[in-house]
Simulated scan of single mutants.
Amino acid sequence: MSETRPPGLGEFRLLVSGPEHPGLSAAVSGALAEQGADVVRFDQLTPAAPAPADHAGPTSYLRAAFRVEEPGTGVPLVEQALHELLDGKGMTWTISDASAPKRMIILASRSDHCLLELLWRHRRGELAAEIPLVISNHRDVQAGVEFFGIPFVHVPSGGEDKSASEAEILELVRGRADLVVLARYMQVLSEDFLRAIGAPVINIHHSFLPAFVGAGPYRKAWERGVKLIGATAHYVTPELDAGPIIEQDVARVDHTYGPKDLQKRGAYVERAVLSRAVQAHLEDRVVSRDGRTVVFE
């Protein structure tokens, strides 16, 4: 999804989440209008289902795409109005510039299907991002990356102790990425690394989480005799394969499939799921709060 911007206008996206407040959408749209912003898209969700036991009440999620004629003065006025409106209500909100592509660094290993899908979609203009480089702990994907004209850096994983390789990756990534994507990067990232990287990290897991967490999910699925296999794209947190889910999909299989057949079938699902999740994040359509996400169309 994208909102077409006429020449001379700055386009921005607002994401809001927090406790439900009656009249929130009207108040936010009114605050934008009062500061001269032209709202071109407005979406809100307040789930009707009961809140979890550990939550005080329902959570509202809101996304607005708006334009201002003079961003240098108009956006600060919008921000001030939102501070006054939302900060005392326990709301979390961000504004991003839709005209500035996010910087996306990709980490990969030997498997190239998810990586090449992202690079192909990027070349076609489907992913509004800059890709400063691709980092891999193996050289298997180097030729494919360089074919797309993207710089490639090889950083070996370094055996059991990953601290040296993580430190090298941090030096390459820090300050150069608004998003890091693990395109089948088959390494578990440490909590220290995730805290220091300074950007959200999206991973693709080759199962329909929360089923078959960790390594070898296709073999685990085969051992259970599943009739559906899937893939899950999620934000990375210190807990393995437990971060907020962005996108999922499945494919039907049957008793004739062995573990390798499941893996081949699943590769199609993995690359589609990851690319959709990345696109949603780049277009500021994902609102994450309390371990769950809402993804606006």
Rank of each mutant, 00 (worst) to 15 (best):
Q187S: 10
V295T: 13
G158L: 12
H206R: 03
Q80C: 02
P47T: 13
P132D: 12
A242R: 11
I106C: 02
L45G: 02
T237K: 07
V294I: 15
L262P: 00
P52L: 14
A277G: 15
L77W: 00
L228K: 05
A128S: 14
A211C: 07
G10Q: 07
M104V: 14
H138I: 08
L262K: 01
Q279V: 01
Q142G: 04
G10R: 12
G74N: 01
E11T: 13
P259Y: 09
L194P: 08
Q44D: 10
D261Q: 14
G175S: 01
A56W: 04
G18H: 11
R285Y: 12
S111W: 06
R121T: 06
S29T: 15
E130A: 14
L240R: 00
K264M: 13
V213P: 03
Y218T: 06
E79N: 04
G30I: 11
V201N: 01
T92D: 15
A64F: 00
V213K: 15
L62F: 14
A280Y: 04
L133K: 11
E130N: 13
A183F: 03
P6V: 08
L240W: 00
G198N: 04
F296A: 05
P71K: 07
A233L: 08
P132L: 11
S165P: 04
E297G: 14
M91S: 05
